[in-house]
């Protein structure tokens, strides 16, 4: 492929990512981060910390754990461990997304940055659409998608913080619930059989394991549900389309 043509393709892929973000993810990110901003203000976290946390933590369950535990005066170590565990999903997520960019030598060097830009949203969309794209278009698509989501997320956190006093309880709680429902139905639309099995087993085990161990329940749930789904799918063989 000619350099000029490749460059043009990459730019189009980047714009495609931006456009994909505006189709739905951005609105959900915006609503959820407004909910988070409002929650952060109620928790006594400063404006700067709330806004910066969206960019540097970039994972709502960890951010919520951070501000809520801060509000009740939990010890530093407990806050760090709880938010980190709530965000542990990023480990298998980056392992399963980044290899999609490896054939693209220019993009591969940026993988540590891509890992920081990744959210559940952008991960799920990239996993779904990137394998069908030419390899050199995947990273630009992801970059367009994730930068758009992050910029909107940061701005919405600020807006939510600013508007906090004006939100009644039912609005703030509904914005947080919106995020959960978005992921529920985003995952319910997954078509790959092994992933769907992992989702169903994980949904059943998650609360049970949490009751046994709030700190370690989630990683164990992921390993057991994921491994069981992987082997059940192999056992079932090629019945899926």
């Amino acid at each position: 492929m000619e350099p000029a043509e490749a460059f043009d393709g990459r730019r189009r892929a980047f714009r495609g990512g931006v456009a994909a973000a505006f189709r739905m993810p951005v609105w959900v990110v915006s609503a959820s981060m407004m909910g988070f901003g409002s929650l952060a203000r109620d928790s006594g976290v400063s404006f700067g910390v709330a806004v910066v946390s969206t960019a540097t933590i970039w994972g709502l369950p960890g951010q919520i754990a951070f501000v809520e535990m801060f509000a009740v005066g939990a010890p530093v170590l407990a806050i760090v461990v709880a938010s980190s565990m709530a965000n542990m999903r990023f480990l298998p997520m980056s392992i399963s997304m980044l290899p999609l960019f490896r054939a693209d030598k220019a993009a591969w060097r940026w993988r540590y940055l891509f890992a920081a830009m990744m959210s559940v949203n952008t991960w799920a969309m990239t996993l779904r659409f990137a394998p069908g794209m030419p390899e050199q278009h995947r990273a630009p698509y992801f970059t367009g998608l994730s930068t758009t989501c992050m910029i909107v997320g940061v701005l919405s956190t600020g807006l939510g913080y600013y508007l906090a006093g004006t939100f009644p309880f039912y609005i703030t709680v509904s914005l947080i619930f919106l995020n959960i429902m978005y992921f529920t139905f985003l995952f319910a639309s997954v078509r790959q059989r092994n992933c769907l099995l992992a989702l169903m087993i994980g949904a059943a085990l998650g609360p049970l394991f949490h009751l046994i161990s709030p700190e370690w329940g989630l990683p164990f749930c992921g390993v057991i549900a994921g491994t069981a789904a992987f082997f059940i799918d192999q056992r079932l063989g090629d019945g899926h389309g």
Binding site: A86, P92, S96, A198, M200
Partner: peptide
């Protein structure tokens, strides 16, 4: 991928 989905669904 299965581990990630299992963990997300559990969460």
């Amino acid at each position: 991928s299965c581990l990630a989905y299992g963990m997300l669904a559990g969460l």
